[in-house]
Amino acid sequence: MIQHLLDGILVGSILSLGAIGLTLVMHTLRFANFSHAELLSVGAYAALVFDGIFGALYPQIRSTLDPLSLTWSLILAILFAMIVTGLSAILIDKLVFRRIREKGDELSMVFASFGVAMVLRNLISLFFGLKSQLFSNDIAFAIVISRDPMILVKPDQVFVLVAALMVMLLFHLILSRTTFGYALQAVAENPVLAQISGVNLSRMLKMIWLIGGSLAALSGIFYGLNNQINPVIGRDLVLPIFAATIAGGIGSVYGAVLGGFLVGIASNLVLMILPSGYSPAVPFLIILGVLILRPNGILGEARA
């Protein structure tokens, strides 16, 4: 029970990072961006490439930081990957979404995002192949926290959880303490009104893509660290991330974090009741339950 709860929190932190970006975009631009999860793949592969480059240039930074399987070169690569992914998000918006936004409705955007997701995913598999890859081939063994009940934790997972929580905290501070944060919230609330009040809308939109993209990259890299990297990361994670966003309430950053944990924990705990074959359906049924009780998500507000 405790083990499942713990595992759920660890998985949940990865989903939360992905959901924060999605909820910002969904709220500000009013469309469900199905290509958001592909940014996780972009981030993971970008980190893989940078890690390879840095490791080759400066072999001394390749050694692992025990007990983590992380290296300095990967940490450096993470920063670069976040920037690259954020910029690709802006680029995709410029190429596709902005043009459709100018003349079409939100549903056109939703299906364009499906198309973008297909193109991105298959471009990645064309360049990097379909096989699974890893940041490190070593297996990081779990540490026994307690024997009865048996509780095991992997150092990497703790790192991921701590890092994710710190990023979320940082983001919270930016949102609640800086003028930039207020402007971001204003744009998310009401883009037109924000513009009238002197916020540079197009620059803010770029910032939203940049933040969403870089958080997605982080989420994808952490997923790769804990699991594996393959071109279908986006396809596999798009639904849990959507579920987290919507359960938390579209537009609420804190809701997205909460939703991520909810989905992570739910899909872990369910194995105690149902055979594992049913586990993919369970997060959605929980969301169905949440929405029946709170039609706008846990922390979402009704909006016309």
């Binding site: 595992d7 759920g8 998985v11 872990n268 594992s276 586990s279 993919p280």
Partner: peptide
């Protein structure tokens, strides 16, 4: 199942 976010629960 294919493509799950984590197989930790199954392994546990």
């Amino acid at each position: 199942n294919d493509g799950q976010a984590s197989y930790r629960a199954e392994v546990t």
